[in-house]
């Protein structure tokens, strides 16, 4: 899923402090699971903003809601008849949701309430780690199911580098060396021959480098 992190409340206050009415819109998708922008976080933020306005002596309206997904039109359309009541929306969805709201409600400022960080997994309750960079051309079959693009700090195709030490990355002792993990996994799988085969320069055109991406599945189109 997409992992996000709530923006510091002072940053959000700076965005909305002069407004009279604000809607805090959560998203029931990824950001709910990573506890950054679901209904719960929307309620907490809205409550905090109400208290902020209240103690500033301002009579501002702050409501909260949460949409099933902010990355699908039918769900964001649910705001169509409410949006006029608000000066702005603070969306707690990932960057995709924020932009989709902004596209639909072109005259309404839509502010991001979270920082969208990466595609990752839940390590344990309250801890999420990165796994995928969405390069558009998956090589996991050749790297023991561990992605060197997401998990090597230099996204090397033929690691580990000389800075790797005892399975840790040179940038931090907290960070596992992706290529060390790949080596160990390939060994477990009896595929160490893969490790010694040089990987050619990658085609990055399928990644963000090739420009904004689009996928069409014709059979699904109406």
């Amino acid at each position: 899923m997409i992992i996000a992190k709530p923006k510091p409340i002072e940053e959000i206050i700076e965005l909305v402090k002069d407004l009279k009415s604000v809607l805090v819109a959560g998203c029931d998708g990824c950001v709910t699971v990573c506890e950054a922008g679901g209904m719960k976080e929307a309620q907490v933020l809205a409550s905090a903003l109400r208290m902020y306005f209240r103690q500033q002596g301002k009579d501002a309206r702050v409501d909260e809601t949460s949409l099933t997904r902010q990355c699908d039109r039918p769900y964001i359309a649910q705001l169509d008849d409410q949006i006029e009541k608000y000066d702005a929306v603070v969306s707690l969805a990932c960057g995709a949701g924020v932009q989709f709201l902004a596209e639909r409600f072109s005259k309404k400022p839509i502010f991001p309430g979270v920082n969208t960080c990466f595609i990752g997994v839940t390590e344990q309750k309250g801890e999420w780690t990165e796994r995928c960079q969405a390069c558009g051309d998956c090589i996991l079959a050749t790297t023991g199911g561990i992605c060197p693009i997401a998990r090597c700090s230099k996204r090397m195709a033929n690691g580990p580098c000389g800075g790797s030490s005892s399975g840790k990355c040179e940038i931090s002792k907290e960070t596992a060396c992706g290529w060390h993990l790949i080596y160990e996994r390939l060994k477990e799988l009896g595929q160490l021959d893969r490790f010694e085969r040089p990987n050619d320069p990658k085609n990055w055109a399928t990644s963000r480098d090739g420009g904004p991406r689009k996928i069409i599945k014709e059979v699904s189109q109406v």
């Binding site: 990658k202 990055w204 055109a205 480098d209 090739g210 420009g211």
Partner: peptide, 12 residues
Amino acid sequence: HQSFGDHPTAVN
């Protein structure tokens, strides 16, 4: 953009 050149698969 590199897609115009002779190395369209390059990172930018």
